[in-house]
Write a protein that binds this DNA or RNA. Structure first.
Lengths: 150, 150
DNA sequence: TATTGTTATACTCTATAACTATA
DNA sequence: TATAGTTATAGAGTATAACAATA
């Protein structure tokens, strides 16, 4: 190994960094998203895509701008994201009768089916972290996170 | 406004999404990083740059690979990041005597000075969120986050 | 042979300006 | 004039492969 007494990268003391909310949040989010990618690699669904499909199942017929704004995705970036879902046959755009500029968004049957099958993956993914902090820890964490992002 | 009864984007019900750890973490991290950018815009320092400077103050003389690995930054991406800090005169590379492949990294006096002045910004930034969740909430949150990112 | 730092490169995510078709 | 969706584009952030110098 090393000739010095210096620790290797994994053991370096980060000083005050782990006490900073932003740093701790970034590391935690990275860990959770990495697990998401691992679990959902088979179905080739990324977090943002999953969030869109989930919103459409919960509230079908929302307009494109409503979905993108609610999820914090710029409407300009939402276009390609939804194009991908549509090209895969998981969701579709439908013209709105009383405003021909707008699209109403829906899951396809295939999209609903895939989302249904993904619930098992989602449970496994969440469980991986509930096992670390407990059900109570999860509730506490969610409440604190919501108060940060009000 | 709209002719329909549909809520606008900000009021769309996201369904089960806010109950998911990954989603809640992403939204919280976004809120905190946006505040970081707002507070540190004047000094033109980004979160990753701040983390490097902070580690170098706490442990001067670490090798480039140690810093990048400890912070979860690929060594290949660390090069340009540190080049920027060096070009701004905030940090420097120094050849290591017993391993001429490696660089030891240090803050410059200017870097230490800037980091010192940034402590006030950092306190204001953290306070913005401590005001929302309380000092106890912060301790609880940090503990939970660390257990997620073990 | 392995490691440290580097370059080149590509892919995702995010952000802004400008366009179209409708309202 | 304003809005919904779109295109083009540019900047971050992140990932891999391959190289030079050194161990």
């Amino acid at each position: 190994m090393s000739e010095t007494d210096l620790p290797d990268g994994a053991d370096v003391d980060l000083g005050p960094l782990p006490r900073l909310l932003g740093y701790a949040l970034r590391r935690a989010q990275l860990a959770v998203f990495q697990d998401f990618h691992r679990v959902f690699a088979d179905v080739d669904i990324r977090p943002a895509q999953f969030s869109v499909l989930t919103v459409l199942r919960h509230t079908p017929g929302l307009r494109q701008s409503q979905v993108s704004e609610a999820l914090g995705i710029k409407r300009t970036n939402f276009v390609a994201l939804f194009d991908t879902l549509e090209a895969r046959g998981l969701a579709r755009r439908e013209r709105v009768a009383d405003d021909r500029r707008a699209f109403a968004l829906y899951l396809t049957e295939e999209g609903a089916g895939l989302l249904g099958r993904m619930q098992a993956l989602l449970v496994a993914h969440e469980k991986h972290f509930i096992d670390r902090i407990g059900a109570d820890g999860r509730e506490t964490l969610l409440a604190l996170l919501h108060r940060l992002s009000d």
